[in-house]
Design a binder for these strands. Structure first.
Length: 605
RNA sequence: CGGGGAAUGGCGCAGCUUGGUAGCGCGCCUGCUUUGGGAGCAGGAGGCCGGGGGUUCAAGUCCCCCUUCCCCGACCA
């Protein structure tokens, strides 16, 4: 009877034995995975989908996750931040006090307990941290302080996708700084920003720091760490000459002053069948009317007035007209970011019916503005600057106005950045051409200011015994997302290639032995010797699995160093391969430990 | 939330058009052979065909509803 029980070798402290590891790799790509990180993490047995937008971490995946946590903790502790841990299940009241119960919209996971009381699953924890500090601290002498946690966060995303890259449950490190004054906040912010740079460098993630909008969080100065990534969801601009980089939502266009052209008085033209900019331009070209700049008419000479509905958090709907150059689309993301927490919706049939002064395709500034005929607030894009001349709708079907000069012939209720940004546009900092790239947000730092402290009454006594509202910073890193981002940044056609800092093991030792031969004995001894040197070893000690399968698995799993003990042993050699470069070398058995340790310590990537 | 595709064993897929015993490859189990690039032979286990309603003598297959997944758009660590 006892003989029928499987032998259970006592594992060395860190040893991962594939014969016992809870792992099943897949030969084929899962059908519902699209992006490389999702496919590979699934195929290599790091994660498994358990719910819409929710993933189970298998042993190797969780190892990577913990390694990333370790790097994050290292660097957070190094700047003096202290770790705490809140519940993920939170009461409604604090979020009510800051209005985020409503402002967060449908993305907030709301639920009720058995008595019908409202709860939420935390999407971020500004409120809880603020309350915690308020409860315990009341003096300037207690500041500054920075607290952080590594927590499971919940967002009821409209569309979870791409595996770990955007789930509804994910792990985030969020930290919060508390300072007495703006200089202190700037220092805390700077410390976090520097720590983030060290963290992402250590994780081997290529990233760009871009200026960002603070969005629904409120606050002012804000930067995002974007991993450059083709499958990323953020679009950002970067200067081809200077160091300017910004999220497209946050780009602030600088338009040179318009030349003071001597533009004739405006006049109305018959422009039949010109509800679109293209049709209008064609019509102008054959109209005999010349453009104020003397050149040929183009879409850039037209002023397009787009009407949208702004849906406010309280449910009310306000129309808004935006004037942009006709050759550019309104970038709804940019627009919405500036109207936050309002949401932008298209102006529908019913809305046109409710505003008869708005003639679709021929809307002009004459009727736009809070106190004009249509009663619609009117904002002009930055590109429509003072003194510039335009062709625009005459508020009558088939008619447009030419030579309408901004400031001279029309005005708006204000300004807004609404027009799309395009590659080649001028950099707001140095004027060189901008390029546009995609990235995925892996970190976000911003100076929250006093919004939360005010809403939740976080004050301390200053040196003069006066109450001062504390100023806060908020800093996030997507930990689970980082796992996918590293996989995205670091793989090839064969599989994953983990940077050494976060790999589940330093060495993947492939033993082609049959269980009771020299190869097996040597492999076990080598693995133990490497462990004794402080390396983590994943030992493929499976018997009856062909070498080809083991090689494929080693490449798929992605440990930085692969050691093969097999037929070379007869000549006293083992093979050492670098997973990333593919570089391989035969090493004498008696030099193997030193060589492998050197390979693992010599480079850190 | 709009538009498009899909859901059949752990994974990849066929079967649906034309209703009638649920199949193939991989993986898994047993035995023998094999052992440096996802092995061979033989024998097995494993499936309320996403869920619910209908039509029918009979539904994986036809009809309706729901859920989930993927892709493209609107939103985020």
């Amino acid at each position: 009877m006892l003989g029928a029980l499987r032998a259970r070798p006592i594992p060395l402290p860190h040893m991962l034995r594939m014969s016992r590891l809870f792992l099943r790799t897949l030969r084929d790509d899962p059908a519902d995975a699209e992006v490389p990180s999702h496919k590979l993490l699934l195929r290599a047995g790091y994660i498994r989908r358990a719910a819409p937008g929710g993933y189970t971490w298998l042993p190797l995946g969780w190892e990577v996750h913990r390694n990333i946590e370790r790097v994050v903790r290292d660097e957070m502790n190094a700047i003096g931040a202290q770790e705490v841990h809140f519940p993920a299940l939170l009461p409604r009241e604090p979020y009510e006090a800051t209005n985020r119960w409503d402002d967060y919209g449908d993305t907030l996971f709301r639920l009720k307990d058995r008595r019908g009381a409202d709860f939420l699953l935390g999407p971020t924890h500004e409120e809880m941290f603020t309350l915690l500090v308020r409860d315990l601290y009341s003096s300037y002498k207690d500041l500054p302080v920075s607290l952080y946690q590594i927590q499971t966060k919940y967002r009821d995303e409209a569309r979870p996708r791409a595996g770990l890259l955007r789930g509804r449950e994910f792990t985030m490190k969020d930290s919060y700084s508390f300072d007495l004054d703006d200089a202190g906040l700037a220092a805390s912010y700077g410390a976090h920003r520097d720590a983030y740079i060290r963290i992402f460098d250590r994780l081997g993630i290529p990233y760009v720091v871009v200026t960002a909008m603070s969005g629904a969080m409120g606050g002012s100065i804000s930067e995002e760490f974007l991993a450059e990534c083709e499958v990323g969801e953020d679009t950002f601009v970067r200067c081809t000459s200077c160091d300017y980089a910004a999220n497209t939502e946050a780009v602030r266009v600088r338009v040179p002053a318009s030349p003071r052209l001597d533009v004739p008085a405006p006049r109305v033209l018959d422009t039949p069948n010109t509800p679109t900019i293209d049709a209008l331009v064609e019509c102008l070209k054959t109209s005999g009317v010349s453009a104020p700049h003397g050149g040929e008419w183009s879409g850039a000479d037209t002023l397009k007035n787009v009407v949208v509905i702004v849906k406010n958090p309280d449910g009310t709907r306000t129309p808004l007209a935006v004037g942009v150059p006709g050759d550019r689309e309104v970038d709804m993301k940019r627009l919405e970011a500036q109207l936050s927490p309002g949401e932008v919706e298209p102006f529908g049939e019913a809305d046109f019916a409710a505003h008869p002064a708005l003639v679709r395709g021929y809307i002009g500034p004459d009727v736009l503005g809070a106190h004009k005929a249509a009663g619609v607030r009117y904002l002009l894009d930055t590109r429509v600057n003072e003194g510039s001349a335009w062709v625009t709708g005459a508020n009558t079907v088939g008619k447009h106005v030419v030579n309408l000069v901004c400031g001279r012939d029309f005005a708006a209720d204000g300004r807004i950045e609404a027009a799309e940004v395009r590659p080649g546009d001028a950099c707001p900092k140095c004027g060189a051409a901008l390029r546009i790239d995609r990235g995925i947000e892996i970190g976000h730092v911003f100076q929250l200011g006093r919004k939360y402290a005010e809403a939740l009454d976080l004050r301390v006594l200053d040196q003069h015994g006066k109450q001062q509202v504390v100023t806060m910073g908020s800093y996030g890193i997507g930990v689970s997302r980082a796992v996918a981002v590293v996989a995205e940044a670091s793989h090839d056609e064969l599989g994953l290639c983990w940077p050494r800092e976060i790999a589940p093991a330093d060495v993947h030792l492939v033993s082609t032995g049959k269980g009771n031969d020299d190869v097996t004995t040597f492999s076990d001894g080598l693995a133990a010797a490497l462990e004794a040197e402080g390396l983590k070893v994943l030992l493929d000690d499976r018997v009856g699995v062909s070498p080809g399968v083991k090689f494929k698995d080693a490449e798929l799993l992605g440990m930085p160093t692969i050691v093969i003990v097999g037929k070379g042993l007869a000549e006293g050699k083992v093979e050492v391969r670098d997973r990333r470069s593919g570089e391989r070398s035969d090493v004498a058995t008696d030099a193997a430990v030193a060589h492998i340790v050197g390979a693992c310590r010599g480079r850190n990537r």
